[in-house]
C-alpha cells in the first residue's frame, strides 16, 4: 500500500476520495482506526500526533452514527477526502433509522450550548466525543440533514492553520506540564 499511497500523494492534483461502507456494529471499528492511521501516515503531510487525533475523530463520529443514526442491520458510510498539502475532510453518514436519531439543527444547538458552558462536567459518563474530541481537533464541523433521511457529519482539518500550530505547541507531549515527575 505504501508505494501506491506515495504515488497518489505525489501525483494527486485533485482530491483523493475513499469511501467505506460499514454495517452498524462496533466490531469493525478497530480496522477503521488502523486504516485511518495508515491513510494519514501514507497519504497526507499531517504529523503522527494528528494521525492519532484523526483516529479518535473518525472513531467518535462512527460510534455516534452506529449508536444513534442507523438501526442494526443497516449501514453507515465514511468518506475520506484528502486534499493533498491542504486539508483532510471526513464525512460520516447514517440512515436516520436509529433509536435516537438527531437532526442537524439539534446537534448545532448541542455544540453551541456545550461551547458556551465554561466547564465540562468532569463526572459525566458521556458527552465528550462530539463536543470535545471532534470539536477541538477539527477546524470545521458541520451537520446536514440528508434528503432521503439520516444525518451527514462533515469535519475538515487544514494542514496549515493557527489552530493546528497552537494545539501542537500547547499540547506538546515533550513539554507536558500535566505529566508529573516527582
Amino acid at each position: 500500500m505504501n508505494n501506491i499511497a506515495t504515488t497518489l500523494k505525489n501525483s494527486a492534483k485533485e482530491p483523493v476520495r475513499i469511501k467505506i461502507i460499514l454495517p452498524t456494529t462496533a466490531y469493525f471499528m478497530s480496522g477503521i482506526r488502523d486504516f485511518t492511521l495508515s491513510l494519514i501516515h501514507n497519504m497526507t503531510d499531517f504529523s503522527e500526533q494528528w494521525a492519532y487525533r484523526f483516529q479518535s475523530v473518525v472513531d467518535e463520529l462512527c460510534n455516534n452514527a452506529i449508536e444513534h443514526g442507523s438501526r442494526p442491520g443497516e449501514e453507515i458510510q465514511i468518506t475520506f477526502i484528502n486534499n493533498t498539502s491542504d486539508s483532510l475532510e471526513i464525512v460520516v453518514e447514517d440512515s436516520g433509522t436509529g433509536e435516537h436519531p438527531m437532526k442537524a439543527a439539534e446537534l448545532d444547538k448541542l455544540i453551541e450550548e456545550k461551547s458556551k458552558s465554561s466547564e465540562l462536567d468532569m463526572t459525566s459518563l458521556r458527552g465528550r466525543g462530539l463536543t470535545k474530541i471532534v470539536k477541538e481537533w477539527t477546524d470545521e464541523l458541520r451537520f446536514e440533514d440528508k434528503v432521503d433521511g439520516g444525518l451527514r457529519v462533515i469535519v475538515k482539518k487544514y494542514l496549515h492553520d493557527t489552530k493546528t500550530q497552537k494545539l501542537e505547541k500547547g499540547l506538546s507531549l515533550a513539554g507536558d506540564q500535566t505529566h508529573i515527575v516527582i
Binding site: 500526533q49 492519532y52 487525533r53 479518535s56 466547564e119 465540562l120 468532569m122 465528550r128 470535545k132 474530541i133 477541538e136 481537533w137 499540547l171 507531549l173 507536558d176 500535566t178 505529566h179
Partner: peptide
C-alpha cells in the same frame, strides 16, 4: 495522554 488532555481529565 493527548486525548485525556483534550477532554480536561489530566486536571
Amino acid at each position: 495522554l493527548d486525548i485525556l488532555q483534550v477532554v480536561g481529565l489530566t486536571q
